[in-house]
């Protein structure tokens, strides 16, 4: 489904600030794979996301979606295949537009936009049914402006907007990190549900090791632009947070430096 081959990207090449953000990354995901990505700040997680989404072009390497080379496609073209939920709950929705208008825009993600009404009777009914799955009562507020919703509600809406058109690749970019614990719990739950129901091929970046262990069938750990550890299936199920920290120390010979991954 998604194949990353020999992806490398260097920031500020040739200066004192030179940074190898990604260093020969190879990753292959089958349809339905749910990969969680952990790593400390600057490990290259966000860069990896941006390379897949098309915000950043790698210096070398290939990005293949459904065996199709997409490495040179800009973001707006690639988002026909790739859905993305951002960390900032404000980033994924348009605040001064209504809930139904936001859903209508998301519904056009993998279609050509036309000069027909974005919201019509049958679509409104469909949006209602999708919103009901969130259990937040948003189905009764279709014409409310999204800016009136809470952060948790907006993130739930973002998640729905990204997933209800079944993207080939779903990218979750620390999408629960900016929420309070109970809201984060809700979004995590909804994520689990929708990914399982639609069998979405998912890549989730998280700072929270426990979350990375709870979700998905594969886990990768990144550091300094490389994938340094990988586990999947039964092996992943047996892992605990302590194992991950020990593993990191064994490979890198240093302490995992980010408290947030343990506490967060």
């Amino acid at each position: 489904m998604l194949d990353l081959k020999n992806i490398s990207i260097v920031f500020n090449e040739g200066t004192v600030d030179e940074k190898k953000a990604l260093n020969d990354i190879n990753l292959s995901m089958r349809k339905g794979d749910f990969v969680t990505v952990i790593g400390s700040n600057g490990a290259g997680k966000s860069t990896l996301m941006n390379v897949i989404a098309g915000n950043l072009f790698p210096d070398v390497g290939d990005v293949l979606i459904n065996k199709k080379q997409v490495v040179h496609l800009p973001e707006y073209k690639r988002s026909r295949f790739v859905g993305r939920v951002f960390q900032d709950p404000m980033a994924g929705t348009a605040p001064s537009m209504t809930i139904e208008e936001n859903l209508a825009m998301a519904y056009s993600r993998n279609k050509k936009r036309r000069l027909s009404f974005g919201v019509n009777k049958s679509r409104r009914q469909m949006f209602k049914e999708y919103l009901e799955t969130l259990n937040l009562g948003l189905e009764d507020r279709l014409t409310a402006k999204v800016g009136l919703l809470s952060g948790g509600e907006r993130q739930a809406l973002s998640l729905l907007m990204t997933t209800f058109t079944d993207p080939d690749i779903l990218l979750l970019d620390e999408h629960t990190a900016a929420l309070d614990p109970s809201r984060a719990e809700l979004i995590t739950h909804l994520t689990k549900e929708v990914v399982a129901k639609s069998g979405l091929t998912t890549l989730m970046v998280t700072h929270n090791m426990q979350q990375a262990l709870d979700l998905g069938n594969r886990l990768i750990m990144m550091d300094k632009g490389q994938i340094i550890f990988e586990a999947s299936g039964k092996e992943k199920d047996r892992l605990r947070v302590e194992d991950l920290l020990r593993e990191f120390q064994r490979i890198r010979g240093e302490q995992f430096e980010d408290d947030r991954v343990v506490l967060g």
Binding site: Y76, S79, G83, F86, A91, T93, A94, S96, M105, R113
Partner: peptide
């Protein structure tokens, strides 16, 4: 309203 969002929803 939110340029980043609509770009991520495949709008040119």
């Amino acid at each position: 309203d939110n340029k980043r969002m609509i770009r991520s929803l495949s709008a040119n």
